[in-house]
Computed example of a mutant assay.
Amino acid sequence: MKKKLYKSVKDRKLTGVCRGIAEYFDIDSSIVRIVWLVLIFCAGTGLLAYIICAIVLDDNTNE
């Protein structure tokens, strides 16, 4: 089965991007959230990447 990257519907804090990425890579969503925060505060590119993912990724309606 081919994996697809979706925003999560069941475990969202803002838009479900972090949980969707965590499901895709089969890791805990807290780890992905911490990585996003580090990218936002250190490089500043994390916020832009999050906004782009929130716009581009579809919702996972299979949940």
Rank of each mutant, 00 (worst) to 15 (best):
Y50H: 14
C53E: 03
E23M: 14
R12Q: 10
I27Y: 03
L39S: 09
K3G: 02
V9H: 02
E23C: 11
L48H: 08
Y50M: 04
G20Y: 02
C18H: 13
V56Q: 11
V56S: 08
V9Q: 14
K2R: 15
V32K: 01
I21N: 05
K10I: 06
A49M: 14
E23I: 12
T45S: 07
D59F: 10
K13V: 12
K13C: 07
K7G: 05
R33W: 05
R19G: 12
I40P: 01
D58F: 06
I27K: 09
D28V: 08
K13H: 05
R33P: 03
R12F: 12
T45W: 12
R33I: 02
V35W: 13
N60I: 00
G44A: 01
C18S: 08
V17Y: 00
F41D: 06
I27D: 01
A54F: 10
A43K: 13
Y6Q: 03
I31P: 02
Y6V: 00
I51V: 13
W36I: 10
K7S: 02
T45Y: 11
V17S: 02
L48G: 05
V17F: 00
R12V: 02
A43C: 04
I55R: 12
L48A: 08
D11H: 15
N62C: 09
R33G: 07
N60R: 12
K13G: 12
Y50A: 02
I55D: 01
S8Y: 00
C53W: 02
W36R: 09
M1H: 13
L57K: 14
M1P: 09
V9S: 12
L39Q: 07
V9F: 02
G46E: 01
K10L: 14
K4S: 04
I51C: 11
V38H: 12
F41T: 11
N60A: 04
T15I: 08
T61L: 15
I55H: 04
D58W: 07
V38E: 11
W36G: 01
V9G: 06
F25M: 04
K3H: 10
L37T: 09
D58E: 13
D58R: 14
F41P: 03
E63A: 15
D58M: 06
W36Y: 13
D11Q: 11
G46C: 05
T15R: 13
D11T: 07
S30E: 05
V9C: 11
K2C: 11
G20R: 02
M1R: 13
K13M: 06
F25H: 04
N60F: 00
K7Y: 01
I52P: 03
N62K: 13
L47N: 07
L48C: 05
V32F: 00
I34E: 08
L48V: 10
K3E: 09
K2W: 03
T61R: 15
R19W: 03
G16W: 02
R12H: 07
G20A: 00
C53F: 09
C53P: 03
